[in-house]
Design a binder for these strands. Sequence first.
DNA 1: CCAATTTTTGACCTGTAGTTCAAAAACATT
DNA 2: AATGTTTTTGAACTACAGGTCAAAAATTGG
Lengths: 191, 191
Amino acid sequence: MGRPKNFEPDVVVAQAMETFWSKGYAGTSPADLAEATGVGKGSLYHAFGSKRELFDKALDLYGRVGTEMTEAYLNEPGTAKERIRAYMVFLVDMDLSAPVRRGCLAANTALELGGRDTEATAKVGRITEQSIRLFTERLRRGQREGDVDPALDVEAQAKYLMSMVAGLRVMAKTHERDALHGIIETALAGL
Amino acid sequence: MGRPKNFEPDVVVAQAMETFWSKGYAGTSPADLAEATGVGKGSLYHAFGSKRELFDKALDLYGRVGTEMTEAYLNEPGTAKERIRAYMVFLVDMDLSAPVRRGCLAANTALELGGRDTEATAKVGRITEQSIRLFTERLRRGQREGDVDPALDVEAQAKYLMSMVAGLRVMAKTHERDALHGIIETALAGL
DNA sequence: CCAATTTTTGACCTGTAGTTCAAAAACATT
DNA sequence: AATGTTTTTGAACTACAGGTCAAAAATTGG
């Protein structure tokens, strides 16, 4: 009962995510969010409480979608190295093909809010850990299947790969496709 | 002639740099800058024109200081690998020992303003290129001195190292010293 | 159709960002 | 000490950020 919502909360969160992604947290105003979602400011506040709470949901969504994509890429047929390379190339190409170079929402948040905003930082930390876990699992599987050196310290390698991904997405703000692809090859030479 | 300034512009730029570094560009208000520098808002505008122009000077200073430090670290006695490792460890430890995790001003700027603000992005790009050049030169020297494989593609390796540094400084927002040092070791295993 | 409930709308409010400016202050020169 | 020059000070101003609220609108149940 009651008047029905004329928007889908999930799609509003997704639209908000896009906006925060493009403009940053501080750079996104309630008016921006209203315009991006097509929902009135008042309604947004009624539904989500505050800009910050909406951002939290957006960041959660980003983490879920990112995890799904990572999982999907890593688990397609191929060796661990091939799949990790494909994943990195995908990320870089995605960054570069977007009209505005927005990088990684989690990394952006870490750099914009990190240190001051403990909750946001913790959330980014969890997203990061999740990615590291996926890399770890994929490398272990590679060891079982024989395409990854059994002596490799997979935990250390996974953290290294995570760091690599973060670095690539920073570099994507200033560098071109060829340079980035070259970095990927260099980074994976040891695998 | 005329009333003398009661502040050193260079010092003010340095203080502004620290503030932007800690709080980000959008997160730093003119009032913050006045407090950090001890100079009245009006005087700041009189001397620097706008928040944006002051930020430009701060970013330039950051680039110069960063380049000097990189040069100093890379050129102390030791092999290329040893010196690059020492430099990375230094950066990470510096990030971690600061009371507030502020990362790298250039990377922060790239992520906060990158894509929208072309001039800031270009400036970050130049700082990045400078670092890459220093890595390249140090690796070449290593080749001459016999501690770096002569077959190594030093340009590609230098870009890779730059990306690594960027990644490490993002990771420094959420991870601990041990993990970061581990990443450095993994990253340098191929050298 | 009335009551109860929930959402929307749009006006409104407080605080601060970013900037400007007029007047006073501090110097050098004559 | 009067003049010209440059800087400081502090108030003032516009715009917008972030958020609140009262009233209207849209629904369901009785």
